[in-house]
Design a protein around this nucleic acid. Structure first.
Lengths: 149, 149
DNA sequence: TTGATTGCAAAATATTTGCACGTCA
DNA sequence: TGACGTGCAAATATTTTGCAATCAA
């Protein structure tokens, strides 16, 4: 399922939530930044150009709402702030490659983890609902930069 | 490599760090709580009985130091506070099963991820240094509690 | 002795909340 | 119109930092 602006507005309607200019402009920020892993502050700065009076609290509240509606997914890269990207619930999962040097986040698609999840579920008696896999290391640019020194 | 109290003190010595009563008592808290995933506050509370005058800032500074020395590993379960456990650097990795209901954290040992890591490294050109895998779901107790309702 | 370490209080950071006002449906 | 949503400021929560006093080596 793709996240179009219209489909997201529909989800808001279904939940009996109002469509306000603030919510619109935040949704647009994600549409336009496709695969960005945006923090609340990032979103706030992006939307201020279109809506200078928006409050940071509104951004937080909207992000929380969108995460509840499964439009966005809240994630944590260990840098002390939450980040959001379009939720992948119905598609297959992708994972994150976090560069320890430049802190950029790349993505990686994978299916192998499904197998592992089944093994873990069987051995642990856990009912697994979601998983989160992150690789930390050096991206290609930072590896090359390191070699040049 | 096991984390004994003495081996940890040695690591402090090697780094020219002093062995203070505060550091000792924090190390002991981890030795005695083996596989606990302790937050700074947890450690602070554990340690206050033996050393009532210890400051929370000292706990934070000590945890940071021990993580730098690879005695502890800092981790994040998405509940807004960092947690620490003995570092596993030289052994094989274990992963975490986080219960979404009771928030308890169980562990799971695995080797399958080594394969996946190699695949990711090859495809992404990332030099992978570490990984972090968490499963979220319902532990056995919470599943049973859910069925009873 | 002396530089590292500590406790305290204040600051910094990220996020949440109370409330009066504004607005979407 | 009226409940929902917003902006602001204040409150929380976690972690960090400045500094004078203290302590381990």
């Amino acid at each position: 399922m793709q996240h179009t602006f219209d489909s997201m507005c529909e989800k808001l309607h279904e939940g009996a939530y109002k469509i306000t200019p603030q919510r619109e402009v935040i949704l647009r920020a994600f549409v336009e930044h496709g695969r960005g892993h945006l923090s609340a502050e990032d979103v706030y700065n992006l939307v201020k150009s279109r809506n200078p009076d928006i409050g940071l609290a509104t951004v937080y509240r909207t992000l929380e709402l969108l995460a509840e509606l499964d439009i966005l997914q809240k994630m944590d890269f260990g840098d002390g702030r939450s980040r959001y990207e379009f939720s992948d619930k119905e598609e297959h999962h992708h994972h994150h490659l976090v560069c320890l040097q430049c802190h950029r986040v790349a993505e990686f698609d994978d299916d192998l983890l499904e197998t592992l999840e089944a093994v873990v579920a069987r051995k642990s008696k856990f009912k697994i609902i979601d998983h989160d896999l992150k690789f930390y290391g050096l991206c290609r640019d930072c590896q090359e930069a390191g070699q040049r020194e």
